[in-house]
Nucleic acid binder design. Structure first.
Length: 536
RNA sequence: GGGCCUGUAGCUCAAUGGCAGAGCAGCUGACUCUUAAUCAGCGGGUUGAAGGUUCAAGUCCUUCCAGGCUCACCA
């Protein structure tokens, strides 16, 4: 976790941290790693005394290039059009396609404790004329840009290519236009039918002054221009951009050679892999970001992203594993250590920072947060499956005193997460189910256990969990059976496994007639039945 | 083909160049009302391979092998 603190120690003076995103469609959980890293860097800078501004931009004048995300009849009309100028495909009140997707992403920030000082939308910036100086510089130095593309990225543009994209006055597309001349005030552009494969231009051409929102810079130049416009000093970016000869290299060179400014410090970060594979909404892997957030509350999600160094890929496989419970356990361990409670095993390096930066509220009282009672996630998931269990009451008992408002909030958050986990992610072994018919495993019961079950069947009836629990111990004792063996017998008879939840409450939650019938069936079970199953 | 990352116990990961560790899982045991809790204990390794530097290498250098991501059209 030292990475953020080390970065903070390396810089001097006021800092501007920036990131921006093209709202081209639905995002997945992995997309949140960037914003979380951004936020942690900001917090680290501030806590080491640097005056810091956090900016988050939406590159919503970029062209639509994802056909799959448009309705079929919208493809011809909107492919290549700036995202900000496409109507929302979903009728939920957003002004545009870009606003819809950007807003659903940004809405997650607040929950995660990420609070940029300012959001900016490029569709708002261009019309103000703030970008005009950069557009002019890019046009004046078009030959430098062409040379740099060839040198840095081996991309060969025609000699007449100019680094500005005019928004076609006729069809409104920006992805299909090319500028071939610049006279110092106006550019000559063509909206070509086949400039790119994914969109078709309308054939318009003409001279236009490319200022005040009538044109935009290509993405790499826009990026570098943002650094100058906002005075950005630190900007992390995903490894897809940070690759050698890739976008970041191009933009760095543009910053130096066209806008004559050192690019910001880069913090390249790796992605989040689910089950060893890249997340992809289109391939059906990886829930959309707003979906998995239901199973992983903010502070645990922050922990997941913060703990490894940014340049390490995160392997996370929540499907059918205990990855989610372990994430909670790890967070709780950090809290215990921070609160000075004893913890098992060794602590990760820099654990105190991890816990502090994992908290949603940057101004939280870290000591107080660490001290609050947090129920074990797996224990909760377990209790939720016990028929009739009063989980809040049980947790109050476990804590030994009433839950505070904050503790009740955490409990509710964890209960909700555990429900989602049980429904969508938990492995079979974490789920328990009362078997409809006598489980095969009941054949493993020995004579003493069958005797116990038979006796208990005589006592069966409607009673409370507490009463059942007492009865179980009493019956076991009167038959001379060890309590452990007695409970095992019940679990085998009802769940088909040697262990389970508090048996008394399990039985109390079932229909009394069914309980009596099952007890008798299990008592009558012949040990030879289990021969094939290899019973002990 | 270029770039980045990874390879250490079954799984997830640690280890300023200085005796290879932890959590979880597993196994054994204890427990007369927390029974998937709690407590005690145990096993588990040619650190992907081969060279090199060093008194000393999981760690640094070289070369391989394997896996993953990413770029090479646009943003």
């Amino acid at each position: 976790m030292e990475w953020a603190d080390e970065l903070a120690a390396r810089v001097s003076g006021p800092q501007v941290v920036n990131d921006s995103k093209t709202p081209s469609g639905t995002v997945h959980v992995g997309s949140l790693r960037g914003p979380v890293i951004l936020d942690v860097i900001t917090r680290a800078l501030r806590s080491s005394g640097h005056e810091t501004t956090l900016l988050y931009g939406v590159d919503d004048l970029d062209a639509m290039d994802a056909q799959a995300l448009l309705t079929p009849d919208a493809v011809e009309r909107y492919m290549g059009v700036p995202l900000a100028h496409i109507p929302d495909q979903v009728e939920d009140g957003h002004a545009s396609y870009a606003r819809h997707h950007a807003q659903t992403f940004i809405d997650l920030f607040a929950d995660l404790g990420i609070r940029p000082d300012r959001y900016y939308w490029m569709s708002d910036i261009y019309p103000t004329g703030a970008m005009d100086a950069y557009i002019r510089a890019a046009l004046d130095r078009a030959h430098v840009v062409r040379d740099l593309y060839r040198r840095v990225s081996n991309v060969q543009h025609p000699d007449t290519w100019h680094p500005v994209l005019v928004i076609c006055e006729t069809c409104g597309k920006v992805g299909t236009t090319i500028v071939t001349k610049w006279d110092g005030e106006r550019v000559f552009y063509e909206c070509r039918k086949d400039l790119v494969q994914w969109a078709h231009g309308c054939g318009t051409s003409g001279w236009v002054a490319p200022f005040g929102g009538r044109a935009k810079l290509p993405w790499n130049l826009e990026w570098a221009a943002q650094w100058s416009l906002f005075g950005v000093t630190i900007e992390p970016c995903g490894k897809d951009l940070a690759t050698a000869g890739g976008s970041r290299d191009r933009s760095d060179a543009i910053a130096r050679e066209v806008f004559e400014r050192e690019p910001p410090i880069n913090v390249p970060y790796e992605f989040l892999n689910i089950g060893g594979r890249k997340m992809s909404t289109s391939k059906g892997r990886g829930a959309a970001a707003h979906r998995i957030v239901d199973a992983i509350p903010p502070e645990q999600l922050r922990t997941l992203f913060i703990r490894p160094r940014p340049n390490h890929a995160i392997e996370f496989d929540p499907e059918g594993t205990d990855a989610i419970p372990r994430l909670f356990d790890e967070f709780d361990k950090l809290a215990d250590a921070t609160a000075g409670r004893p913890v098992k095993g060794e602590l990760p390096p820099g654990y105190a920072s991890v816990f502090r930066y994992a908290l949603r509220d940057p101004a939280a009282d870290v000591e107080a947060e660490a001290a609050v009672f947090r129920p074990s996630f797996s224990h909760l998931a377990f209790l939720l499956q016990v028929p009739g269990a009063d989980v809040p009451a049980l947790m109050t008992a476990e804590k030994g005193s009433g839950l505070t408002v904050r503790e009740r909030e955490i409990l509710d958050e964890r209960i909700a997460a555990a429900r989602v986990w049980l429904d969508d992610y938990a492995p079979e072994r974490a789920r328990m189910r009362v078997q409809e018919t006598l489980p095969e495993a009941a054949g493993e019961l020995d004579a003493a256990q069958r005797m116990f079950l038979a006796t208990l069947a005589e006592e069966a009836g409607a009673r409370t969990g507490d009463a059942w629990q007492t009865q179980i111990f009493a019956t076991a004792a009167s038959g001379g059976l060890a309590a452990g063996k007695a409970f095992q017998a019940l679990y085998l008879a009802f769940l088909g496994r040697p262990n389970g939840p508090r048996a008394g409450w399990l039985l109390a939650g079932l229909e009394p007639g069914f309980v009596a019938r099952r007890l008798r069936e299990a008592a009558a079970a012949d040990a030879t039945m289990a021969g094939a199953g290899g019973a002990a």
